[in-house]
Simulated assay, not measured.
Amino acid sequence: MRVIGIDPGTAITGYGIIDLEGNRLSVVAYDCITTQPTMSMPSRLQHLYRQLEMVLRHYRPRQFAVEELFFQKNVRTALAVGQARGVAILAAVNAGLAVAEYTPLQVKQAVVGYGRAAKEQVQYMVRALLGLPEVPRPDDVADALAVAICHAHYLQSAARIRGETRG
């Protein structure tokens, strides 16, 4: 089962694609989509949408997971991230994918086993769980892979509850 995780943002949107086979996780691809600060917000959102469309077409994930917006002190930042989330969700839905959403607390719990884990702990576990030589950079990419891992764990748990095995 191929899963894409998204950490949305208007300046940097991280994505991570993993395969789940039985209990094994393997990394397929990870990177980020960036926009220039000189671009208008509508142009940034359009660029993000088009790039995500290309990623979804190329890698053909069967599952899509995105990080939920958490409380931001800066309202302007929260609104911009919300717009990027909306664009990412639209790209997923237009590609025929259902959307799973996870809070940062849920992601940390799934990846580290502790919902209040530090960012460095999450990054270490992403590297370890996927057998990567180093922590993916920038942080948005590691966060996107963590979202994908979180959803993969959810899929495994749901399959166990139904009495199925994944492969």
Rank of each mutant, 00 (worst) to 15 (best):
T10H: 01
M54T: 10
D7Q: 08
N74F: 02
R127E: 13
N94Q: 13
T165D: 03
P138G: 12
V111G: 01
V107Q: 03
C150W: 05
G22Y: 08
L129G: 07
V147F: 04
A29S: 10
E120M: 12
T13W: 01
G115Q: 04
E68V: 14
L25M: 14
I17N: 01
A100L: 10
L48M: 08
H58Y: 05
R50Q: 09
Y102P: 04
V135L: 09
A92H: 01
R162C: 05
A118T: 11
A100Q: 09
E120T: 14
T77I: 05
P136H: 15
G22S: 10
D140A: 14
N74T: 04
L97F: 08
K73P: 02
V147P: 00
A128Y: 14
E67I: 14
A80S: 08
P104G: 12
D7N: 09
G96S: 03
Q123S: 12
T165E: 05
I89W: 03
G167F: 02
V126L: 13
G86W: 10
L129H: 09
D19P: 04
Q121L: 10
R166K: 08
F64R: 00
L145S: 07
L130N: 14
A78W: 11
I161A: 04
R62C: 05
F71E: 14
E53M: 04
P8L: 09
A128P: 07
T13L: 13
A65E: 06
G113F: 03
A92F: 03
S26K: 15
Q121M: 12
N74Q: 09
A128C: 14
A11Q: 05
Q72H: 15
T13E: 07
D143T: 15
A95C: 05
L25P: 09
V87F: 00
G115A: 06
V141E: 02
R44T: 05
M125K: 06
P37H: 09
V87R: 00
Q36F: 13
Q46C: 09
H58E: 07
E67G: 13
C150E: 10
P8H: 09
V107L: 06
A148Q: 05
E68N: 15
N74M: 07
R24M: 14
A100V: 11
T10P: 00
V55M: 01
R50N: 08
A91Y: 00
A78K: 11
C150Y: 10
G96P: 01
A144Q: 06
S26R: 15
L45D: 01
A80F: 02
A80L: 07
I89Y: 03
V147S: 02
P138A: 12
P61C: 05
A98K: 15
I89N: 02
V27T: 15
A100T: 12
A95W: 01
N94A: 07
F70H: 14
Q83V: 04
N94R: 13
T13G: 08
D31R: 04
V28S: 02
A84R: 00
Y15E: 02
A110V: 06
L130W: 13
A159I: 02
R2A: 06
R62N: 08
E68D: 15
L129A: 10
H47G: 03
G163D: 02
A146Q: 11
